[in-house]
Write a protein that binds this DNA or RNA. Structure first.
Lengths: 205, 205
DNA sequence: GATGCTCTTTGACGACTGTCAAGACTTCTC
DNA sequence: GAGAAGTCTTGACAGTCGTCAAAGAGCATC
């Protein structure tokens, strides 16, 4: 532990963690652009301020790097709708805010979403990814769960479908919309909006 | 065209197509085992009766091969529930048969399903795959659509949700179940059964 | 049996892969 | 300022990738 670290109240491990996070972010960017199958360590390094060797300094191997990428991804995505949930005062307002955020992220962050589906799929083949992927999937499930719970509250009804099922349903709808969006179908966001709007009322009673 | 081909009333192009199909089948097997990112042409050849060079004889390049794989996959999967649809005489019988087939294929053909999701995801990055993948997705959508239509008929009601939405919903449920199944969760099939059984009544009115 | 055609194997090419060691550069400690 | 510790670059390694040319094998035809 350095004196400077003492002075700033910051341990060296934080610096290492920060660099790791920085490199994982560069890796995420590359993976979102090219996909897991087409992404090498040198591609990732080129999207960062460092050379490819530094990756082996901060990560044991490629699997370790990808694992940290998944965790980095987690930090970003699990609070997307929390503000809407916190501020909405009616069921209609909540639904509208959810739909707005949902279609926004579909159009604005499509590459990031395809990366997530790519990594989640890799976990079907590579056991090393499974635990972290499952953890994020659970996080996302709870995020959706909070929306539906609040939606039920605001509309004076009760949730009728268990959170894992609700999440699977919305995830399926979103994935289909993402496929269309990336294929250049301009109506993808609108169709997603319509589909979710149609499904939402069925989840409470 | 050879004389033999004439005699048998079989054009040489059919032999070529048959071999292509055979190699694509070997490729599918390999892809289901190892995933797209970890599958090379030599791996595929080792799962066939031929050496790796023959792949370049029957396919222009790797993309061409994968495209044929997707089409080969199509031939197998789109009629899975047709018998159930044709023979069921009551809504309950249809639902039960659908659920049985659904959980059966989840447990017995999990590697093949993860391959499909892998290839569909690749199409988000590789435009060359998009058309064929979209075509299969449409086939699957119609397959699910036939079930719901018949289910509505048998129960004297009418479908309330458009086929693309129904397909997306079931696909999302199935994908979550597949993730759990491949992660070794023994209750995956049962949970899928429960979830689909819970959702199905909401689709008609 | 020789010829020509189709199919298949073999081996090699250049490029790329993940990994890692050696050294250079920076930063901190005393 | 010397030395140590931490950080980063460079270059190379063994292996794999997709691709393809050359030659061999199998077989029908003349």
């Amino acid at each position: 532990m350095t004196a400077a670290a003492h002075r700033l109240g910051r341990r060296p491990v934080d610096k290492v963690a920060a660099r790791r996070s920085e490199l994982a972010a560069a890796a995420l960017k590359t993976l979102a652009e090219r996909g897991y199958a087409q992404t090498g360590l040198r591609d990732i390094a080129q999207n960062s301020d460092f050379s490819h060797g530094v990756l082996h300094y901060y990560f044991a191997d490629k699997t370790d790097l990808i694992t940290h990428c998944v965790r980095e991804y987690k930090e970003r995505c699990a609070t997307r709708y929390d503000e809407v949930v916190a501020t909405a005062t009616t069921a209609e307002e909540l639904a509208a805010g959810f739909l707005r955020k949902l279609t926004e992220t579909l159009t604005d962050e499509a590459p990031m979403h395809r990366l997530w589906y790519d990594l989640r799929n890799q976990s079907m083949f590579e056991p090393a990814f499974r635990a972290d992927v499952a953890e994020i999937d659970l996080l996302l499930e709870r995020m959706i769960g909070r929306i539906v719970t609040r939606y039920a509250e605001l509309s004076g009804r009760t949730p009728q479908v268990a959170p894992p099922v609700v999440y699977a349903v919305f995830d399926g709808l979103f994935q289909q919309a993402l496929l269309r969006q990336l294929a250049g179908v301009p109506s993808a966001a609108g169709e997603l909006r319509a589909a979710v709007g149609q499904v939402l009322p069925h989840l409470v009673r």
